[in-house]
């Protein structure tokens, strides 16, 4: 058995401590909140400290941080599937009680069980979910290519129509700010495509002039994107990052506990 320091330390922190905490929690209800916050503190602080303390026990090959990364890839997988339990609960309830729109729930559940079932079959049989050794696709891949792909692409493609309609109905030069927004939008839309060449296409003598103007417009668009847009984006990034970083500190220190269903903190 491999008893490198990193593994053993992680097992103590994230297995033994929780086991003790859970056992005690059955008798001391106050520990049901404090225990998880205490353990979470270590999980949050390890990736941060490892940048400051480049020592073997923390960030070395056999240290805690690399192994913790590996662990949390696995936990993430479980967490991702968490919501599906909810969907199945809601769906079966709707169907059992014949609530309004239940046939659509049945369609949803059918899609979920067939696709998910083929995925599980891929794992159990060892076939996987992409291609077989002979180059042919698995049944899961067939569903992914012919159901999942066109559905996702088309549902999002609908937005193109709604954006066009919004451009017509809501994009108005009502005041200074809206006018700036509109002008920037139009300039960028015109400058990112060969619009002037397209308009000049029926008039060959105008084409060289259109190509020249189009180049200029393209340069202006790049300036807008890099300088005013880049500056605004930098400002947004700095502001949002400081907010997220302070939120991270609140979570790690256990001040923010809403995510554990413990009320919103102070």
């Amino acid at each position: 058995m491999n008893f490198e320091f990193g593994r053993v330390a992680l097992v103590v922190l994230f297995a033994l401590l929780p086991i003790v905490g859970i056992a005690l929690g059955f008798f001391v209800p106050a520990l049901r909140a404090r225990g998880p916050l205490f353990v979470a503190f270590f999980a949050g602080i390890i990736p941060i400290l490892s940048l400051y303390i480049p020592r073997q026990f923390l960030s070395g090959e056999t240290g805690m941080r690399p192994r913790l990364d590996q662990w949390l890839i696995i936990v993430y997988g479980f967490a991702l599937l968490l919501g599906i339990v909810n969907v199945i609960q809601n769906g079966t309830r709707k169907i059992a009680r014949r609530e309004k729109g239940w046939p659509y729930s049945a369609v949803l559940m059918t899609g979920l069980f067939i696709t998910g079932g083929l995925g599980i079959w891929g794992a159990v049989s060892g076939q996987g979910i992409t291609t077989l050794p002979d180059g042919s696709g698995t049944p899961f891949k067939w569903i992914a290519d012919h159901f999942f792909l066109p559905l996702q692409a088309t549902i999002f493609a609908l937005l193109a129509f709604f954006m066009a309609s919004a451009a017509f109905r809501a994009f108005r030069a009502r005041n200074t700010e809206a006018t700036i927004l509109l002008a920037a939008g139009i300039l960028v839309m015109a400058g990112r495509v060969p619009l002037l060449e397209f308009l000049a296409a029926p008039f060959p003598p105008l084409q060289p002039a259109a190509a020249g103007a189009s180049q200029g417009l393209g340069k202006l668009t790049e300036w807008i994107m890099q300088t005013p847009n880049g500056a605004a984006q930098s400002g947004i990034i700095i502001g949002a990052a400081l907010g997220a970083a302070s939120m991270a500190i609140r979570v790690i220190l256990g001040i923010e506990r809403g995510y554990l269903g413990l009320g919103g903190g102070e």
Binding site: A164, F168, F171, A173, L182, V193, L195
Partner: peptide, 24 residues
């Protein structure tokens, strides 16, 4: 794809301009 992009950008810019002229 850029051909269709160009045509659509033209249409949407027209939408915005017509919408604004009508609004004003």
């Amino acid at each position: 794809g850029m051909d269709a992009q160009t045509v659509i950008h033209f249409i949407i810019i027209l939408f915005i301009l017509i919408g604004n002229v009508a609004f004003m």
